[in-house]
Amino acid sequence: MNRERLTNIALPLIGTLIVVAVWEAASRLGAIDPRVFPGPVTAIAEAAGRLSADTVGEHMAWSLFRVFSGFALGVAAGVVIGVLAGWYRWFGLIARPLIELLRPIPPLAWIPLAIIWFGLGEPSKFFIIFLGAFFPVVTATYHGVTNVDPILVRAARTFGVGGWSLLARIVLPAASPDLATGIRIGWGLSFGVLVAAELIAADRGLGYMIMNERNTGGSVSVIIVGILLIGFLNLLTDAAIGSAIQRWIGRWHGSGV
């Protein structure tokens, strides 16, 4: 058990180190052109020279703030609409075709409309990120609410529990593993559209930092470090959400999501 845990932590670390080492070696041996693809040591050193930690920290903080806001709105709307669509048949009949129609549209395709509707400020970015979270959450919530084990509903009914009480005490908890899956996927998608959202005339955020460097003919190192930062942030926050979900439903549901 302990040994298995060690392996589970050690192997991914070793794998990452190998890839970084190969990357560094390839750059030192001249296998890749350092002007378009510098090695990790050069990239970090150069990026550190061009940007202060404060500046990077500020860009990161803005990106996180946007993702959290858009994501929170998307989760809230997704849960409410998903629950209503699953609980009231008539509402489901109206809402589901609309959701199914809009769901396959990539959030990025909404950018032009977002600019027209919300202008170039923060709301248009929230909107794009919101879409990233909304569709996975609304779909998973609907699925969870409509797929509650009927035996649990019957059992609750034998205790005279029905109506809203049935929804709150049985259906929602029973649907929470599905909801958790939707939240996790939604977080990933929200993060995924972050850079694109920040392309909408932003003046801060990691997406802006990257594009600005490209547009002003700056250093490719900053772009590489920026991209890796996005991945890293996503990894950390996803792990945090995963462990929160584990604490929320792990004990009774078994495996996490």
Binding site: A155, R157, T158
Partner: peptide, 20 residues
Amino acid sequence: RGPGQGQGVVFQQHALFPWM
């Protein structure tokens, strides 16, 4: 006329609420 009139039920599968 419905459940909850003094009938207790035990089902074949345990039907316990897994989150409790």
